[in-house]
Simulated scan of single mutants.
Amino acid sequence: MRILAMDSSAVSASCALLEDEKLIGEQYLNVGLTHSQTLMQLVEHLLAAAHVKPAQVDGFAVNSGPGSFTGIRIGVAAVKGMAFAQGKPCVGISTLESMAYLFEGFDGVVCGAMDARCQQVYQALFEVRNGQVIRLCEDRALTIAELTAELKCLGKQVLLTGDGAHVCEKAFAEQGIPFRLAPLHLRYQRAYGVARAAQQAFAQGKGVDASALLPSYLRLPQAQRELKRRQAAGK
């Protein structure tokens, strides 16, 4: 199966083309430009370089959240558009799960953490065993203190990855959490991980029509949270 995967859930943008177990190509850019400027350019360059037409793609995948609200919307819209135009299935992948798929050669617990601001992280735990990625908990938004307390009870060394690693690192060290940082070139989400997770999702029959693909934010945008807070205060 030939899968075109995209990620625009944080600062970087990337796309990858995977055919069965073979990575055909990947484009990655981390320059601070908006994803509306970069994502589809990366896709166009990748397909042109691989001599693959959109119609030759069997399925499309995207990190559908958690992450940047704007970035997720752009990525989901891009995949919905391409999947609809080609009449092909698509799948939304948890950003945190796609990050764990970058460590298929690792045996142990992967702690994916994305910076959610205000001393919070979007977080999930996965165990990687013999090349298999096993989810240990659902995606959630936690304070760093809550995550630290949970990992202290876990009592295992974890591989800390994601753009939230830098906000967790000090707290983990202070509380004696056994951890090591993922290497920089694997620490941030990449479309290759999306494609690998999508392979499993398609094999399990989780592909959907473009109209059914939706973002997964985990929590409301800041503006809506503020509105709810003001409404509650006014009661």
Rank of each mutant, 00 (worst) to 15 (best):
A61F: 13
C15V: 11
Y28C: 04
V52W: 12
N63A: 14
K22F: 11
G32I: 03
L33H: 10
E44D: 11
C15M: 10
K53C: 08
E44A: 04
Q56S: 13
A10K: 04
Q41T: 15
P66V: 09
N63V: 00
N63P: 01
P54R: 03
Q27R: 12
Y28N: 04
L33W: 08
T70N: 14
K22Q: 14
G65Q: 06
S12M: 03
A55W: 09
L33I: 02
L18P: 06
A48T: 13
G32T: 09
H45S: 14
A49Q: 15
A61R: 03
H51S: 15
E21D: 15
A50N: 00
L33P: 03
L46D: 15
D58H: 15
G59R: 00
Q27V: 10
L17S: 07
D58N: 15
D58Q: 12
V62C: 08
L47Y: 14
H35K: 02
Y28G: 02
V57C: 10
V31L: 01
V62S: 13
S64T: 05
Q56R: 06
V62L: 08
T34F: 00
E21I: 05
F69S: 02
H35Q: 02
G65R: 09
S14K: 12
Y28S: 01
A10R: 04
V31E: 14
D20W: 07
S12A: 15
A16G: 12
L29P: 03
E19G: 08
E19K: 14
V11Y: 07
I24L: 13
D20T: 01
N30H: 07
G65N: 11
L18S: 10
N63T: 12
D20Y: 02
L46G: 12
Q27M: 09
L39I: 13
A55L: 07
S68N: 11
G67N: 04
Q37L: 13
G71L: 01
P54N: 08
V11A: 00
S64Y: 12
G59E: 07
E26A: 05
T70E: 03
P66D: 09
L23K: 06
V31Y: 11
G71E: 06
D20C: 04
V57A: 00
V11T: 06
L33V: 00
G65V: 08
T34W: 01
A16Y: 14
A50Y: 14
V43K: 02
G25M: 07
V62I: 03
P54C: 05
V11W: 13
A61E: 00
A16D: 12
G67R: 03
A48E: 13
G32A: 00
A13W: 04
S64I: 00
G25R: 15
A16V: 15
V52T: 15
Q27T: 05
F69K: 06
F69W: 05
V31R: 11
K22S: 05
T38N: 09
L47Q: 08
H51N: 15
M40G: 11
Q27Y: 02
E26Y: 01
F60S: 02
S14R: 12
S36V: 03
S64Q: 11
H35C: 06
T34D: 06
T38S: 07
L18E: 09
H35L: 06
K53W: 07
S36M: 01
L42Q: 01
G32Y: 10
A48Y: 05
V52Q: 11
Q41D: 09
S14C: 08
S68C: 04
G32P: 02
I24P: 03
